Amino acid sequence: MKRRTFIKNTAATSLVCSIPPFFNLNSDPDDYSVTELMGKADIELFGEGINLREEAHDAFVKMKKAAYTDGFDIKMVSSYRDFYRQESIWERKFLRYTEDQGMQPLDAIDKIIEYSTIPGTSRHHWGTDIDIVDGYAKTSGDILVPEKFEEGGPFGGFKLWLNENSEKFGFYLVYTKEPRRRGFKYEPWHYSYAPISIPMLTAFRKKNILKLILNEDFMGSEHFTTGFLKAYIQDNILDINQELL
């Protein structure tokens, strides 16, 4: 449910009154440095096991309490990741696909960017984005699987709750199920705290992202071309939930 629809159709309550005003963005895009945007700066994070910027942390705690009241235990799978953690994820996957599975480097890169970002371009660098599941649900194996968030899946009920409630707390789904959307595949677990992440994305767009990536040196980066990176920026960084632009 879109937030504007929720506000139109739902009577005002104390919970609604606590909603962060979506368009009253508290951050100035000019406040963010290149190193901060790329996950290379030390930023202040809040909450044991939460690790978000203060305002995002406070909103998350409120959402977690509301979910608990409705029978869900929001479990944080991932929040802040610095550049070097993202680099290790990227290189581990690159080695697995090229050495273990024998894929060509360009094919391996295409496979990686189905779900994982190029180091320095992850929204998780910002301290605003979260990957979450319901800790009460019984499941095994990989948990961040889209099918597990569908009706009948272990997180199906939790996803319905998020559809109805996450935007009240400023958290918006990033990579939607919109069929015409390009870039990263649908991630029903990935939410972003919009009042901060929107200004941060605006700041990032003002930088020469292509040049920033080309200046980095990690496994596979030698195969990046200008054409590939332009498409990556347009499709993977910018083709997201339109509410977050």
Rank of each mutant, 00 (worst) to 15 (best):
P195W: 12
E187L: 03
H190I: 02
F184V: 05
S197D: 14
K185Y: 13
N215Q: 12
I209Q: 07
P188A: 04
P199N: 09
K185L: 07
F204P: 04
I209D: 03
F184A: 06
K207N: 08
K207Q: 08
K211F: 08
R205Y: 12
K206E: 09
I213S: 02
F204Y: 08
I198E: 07
I209N: 00
N208Y: 08
P188K: 05
L210W: 03
F204H: 02
K185C: 10
P188Y: 00
N215F: 09
K206I: 03
I213Y: 10
P195M: 10
L210S: 01
S192H: 05
A203I: 01
K211C: 04
M200Q: 15
M200F: 14
W189K: 09
P199W: 10
K207C: 09
K211A: 15
A203F: 10
L214N: 14
A203N: 00
A203K: 09
M200W: 13
I198N: 03
S197M: 14
R205T: 13
L210T: 14
I213P: 04
N215P: 00
Y191D: 06
L212P: 08
Y193F: 15
S197E: 11
W189Y: 01
L214K: 15
P199F: 03
Y193P: 05
K207H: 08
K211S: 09
